[in-house]
Amino acid sequence: MDVFMKGLSKAKEGVVAAAEKTKQGVAEAAGKTKEGVLYVGSKTKEGVVHGVATVAEKTKEQVTNVGGAVVTGVTAVAQKTVEGAGSIAAATGFVKKDQLGKNEEGAPQEGILEDMPVDPDNEAYEMPSEEGYQDYEPEA
């Protein structure tokens, strides 16, 4: 019985440690998101679009440190934060509304985080759909 109880105690310690790591990862992701939003706020009209992409990228980098179902929630929060940063930029006159959601080359930025393969159960990952990809044929 002692062996059984000791095993359960060790398992509990492992769960607590994993929860603490997840909590730490979420806190880091939130900190990076805040950094990115402050970065966007300090940019001029020309830099705002690039700044919004930076927020998304920093958040995406930190999301990889967070495991399990938390990833889905962090990704949703990050996307809403990026959308909010863009709205703030438009409201303050840093950028025109028609410039939001495009990178410096004018290509749409939507789907940055949505296409990231995420499995809350950590069982399997699927690649994003290939609808947006084109076949590449090298020139002879």
Results as ranks from 00 to 15, higher is better:
residue 1 M to I: 00
residue 2 D to V: 01
residue 3 V to H: 13
residue 4 F to Y: 11
residue 5 M to P: 00
residue 6 K to D: 06
residue 6 K to C: 05
residue 7 G to I: 05
residue 7 G to L: 05
residue 8 L to H: 00
residue 8 L to E: 00
residue 9 S to G: 03
residue 11 A to R: 01
residue 11 A to V: 15
residue 11 A to H: 01
residue 11 A to T: 05
residue 12 K to F: 07
residue 14 G to E: 04
residue 14 G to F: 06
residue 14 G to Q: 12
residue 15 V to S: 00
residue 15 V to K: 01
residue 16 V to D: 01
residue 16 V to K: 01
residue 16 V to P: 01
residue 17 A to S: 08
residue 17 A to C: 08
residue 18 A to C: 13
residue 18 A to W: 14
residue 19 A to N: 01
residue 19 A to C: 05
residue 20 E to Y: 14
residue 21 K to S: 10
residue 22 T to I: 00
residue 22 T to K: 00
residue 23 K to W: 15
residue 23 K to S: 14
residue 25 G to N: 06
residue 25 G to A: 15
residue 25 G to Q: 13
residue 27 A to S: 15
residue 28 E to P: 01
residue 28 E to Y: 07
residue 30 A to I: 14
residue 30 A to P: 02
residue 30 A to L: 14
residue 31 G to M: 00
residue 32 K to T: 06
residue 32 K to W: 15
residue 33 T to F: 03
residue 35 E to G: 08
residue 37 V to I: 14
residue 38 L to I: 06
residue 39 Y to M: 02
residue 41 G to K: 08
residue 42 S to G: 08
residue 42 S to E: 08
residue 43 K to W: 15
residue 43 K to H: 04
residue 43 K to L: 13
residue 45 K to F: 14
residue 45 K to L: 13
residue 45 K to N: 03
residue 46 E to M: 09
residue 46 E to T: 08
residue 47 G to N: 14
residue 47 G to E: 02
residue 47 G to M: 11
residue 47 G to W: 11
residue 49 V to S: 06
residue 50 H to D: 03
residue 50 H to C: 07
residue 50 H to I: 13
residue 51 G to F: 01
residue 51 G to H: 01
residue 51 G to E: 01
residue 51 G to C: 14
residue 53 A to H: 00
residue 57 E to H: 05
residue 59 T to I: 10
residue 59 T to N: 05
residue 60 K to L: 11
residue 60 K to R: 10
residue 60 K to W: 06
residue 61 E to G: 02
residue 61 E to W: 01
residue 62 Q to F: 12
residue 62 Q to V: 12
residue 63 V to F: 11
residue 64 T to K: 10
residue 65 N to E: 07
residue 66 V to E: 01
residue 66 V to Y: 15
residue 67 G to I: 12
residue 69 A to I: 10
residue 72 T to L: 13
residue 72 T to S: 01
residue 72 T to C: 02
residue 73 G to T: 14
residue 73 G to F: 15
residue 74 V to E: 02
residue 75 T to A: 12
residue 75 T to Q: 06
residue 75 T to V: 11
residue 77 V to W: 15
residue 77 V to E: 01
residue 77 V to M: 15
residue 78 A to G: 06
residue 78 A to C: 15
residue 79 Q to A: 05
residue 79 Q to D: 07
residue 79 Q to S: 09
residue 79 Q to C: 12
residue 79 Q to I: 09
residue 80 K to R: 06
residue 80 K to L: 13
residue 80 K to T: 04
residue 80 K to A: 05
residue 81 T to Q: 05
residue 82 V to D: 04
residue 82 V to T: 03
residue 84 G to F: 04
residue 84 G to D: 07
residue 84 G to Q: 15
residue 85 A to C: 05
residue 86 G to R: 11
residue 86 G to H: 13
residue 87 S to D: 13
residue 88 I to E: 04
residue 88 I to G: 03
residue 88 I to D: 04
residue 89 A to C: 10
residue 91 A to R: 02
residue 91 A to H: 12
residue 92 T to Q: 11
residue 95 V to P: 09
residue 96 K to I: 12
residue 96 K to T: 09
residue 97 K to V: 13
residue 97 K to Q: 03
residue 98 D to T: 07
residue 98 D to F: 05
residue 99 Q to P: 04
residue 100 L to Q: 06
residue 100 L to K: 02
residue 100 L to W: 11
residue 101 G to S: 14
residue 102 K to W: 11
residue 102 K to R: 02
residue 103 N to S: 06
residue 104 E to L: 07
residue 105 E to H: 09
residue 105 E to S: 09
residue 106 G to S: 12
residue 106 G to E: 13
residue 107 A to K: 08
residue 108 P to A: 06
residue 109 Q to S: 14
residue 109 Q to K: 10
residue 110 E to C: 08
residue 112 I to Y: 05
residue 113 L to M: 13
residue 115 D to N: 08
residue 115 D to F: 06
residue 116 M to D: 14
residue 117 P to K: 04
residue 117 P to Y: 06
residue 117 P to W: 03
residue 118 V to T: 07
residue 118 V to L: 07
residue 119 D to F: 11
residue 119 D to S: 02
residue 120 P to R: 07
residue 120 P to F: 15
residue 121 D to N: 10
residue 122 N to S: 10
residue 123 E to I: 12
residue 123 E to Y: 04
residue 123 E to W: 11
residue 124 A to D: 03
residue 124 A to S: 12
residue 125 Y to D: 13
residue 126 E to C: 10
residue 127 M to P: 04
residue 127 M to L: 09
residue 127 M to A: 11
residue 128 P to Y: 11
residue 129 S to D: 04
residue 129 S to Q: 04
residue 130 E to K: 07
residue 131 E to Y: 14
residue 133 Y to G: 15
residue 133 Y to E: 06
residue 134 Q to A: 06
residue 135 D to C: 08
residue 137 E to A: 15
residue 137 E to R: 12
residue 138 P to H: 05
residue 138 P to K: 08
residue 139 E to G: 11
residue 139 E to R: 07
residue 139 E to L: 13
residue 139 E to A: 11
residue 140 A to S: 12
residue 140 A to I: 05
